[in-house]
Amino acid sequence: MTSRRYIDGSEVRITPNDGIFVDVEFYGGLKIEMLEPKRLFPISGLSKYITLLDSDGNEAAIIRSVDSLLPDSKKTILRCLEEYYMIPKISRLISRTEKFRIWLWTVETDRGIHTFEIINHITSIKTLYDGRILIKDASDNRYEIPDIYALDRRSQKLIMPDI
């Protein structure tokens, strides 16, 4: 087992490379290019423990907390994560119809209006302890309701039976 390299903060400078990739330069002089930042806890810890993977999927380092990075590095990482993780946030439920166990949801999200199917509402909708609701559609796309009580009353009424 090789020792894991953790990044705590200002010891690195992270600069954007191509799309969702970044270059990481340690102040000791080491520079690693084309690393892909990925969340180790994409559901429970959005800004903590971000792994940096090389093109073979090997881990180069782990950022303990994005908040501890230098402002530019933090911005770069957050932009990459934003690009990589597409979890539209549902702000309104426009309609929710169901016929024989197939649910058709039309929702308003931060990325526009979208319609999707849910085949099994028991396994596809999960309420987390922090109050967020995660939804997975029939094509394995993800959606999130950050706070059900922030939705309008009609949307709440439509979702309540499923959670």
């Binding site: 799309g19 994409p42 597409m86 993800r142």
Partner: peptide
């Protein structure tokens, strides 16, 4: 195709090594 989380892009690299995204789509 580069699969990300809940979305993916069709990526092309040209003969000069330059990469770019052609279209973006969900897992559907």
């Amino acid at each position: 195709v580069k699969r990300m989380y809940g979305n993916a892009v069709l990526k092309v690299e040209d003969s000069h090594g330059a990469r770019r995204d052609i279209i973006r789509f969900t897992y559907s």
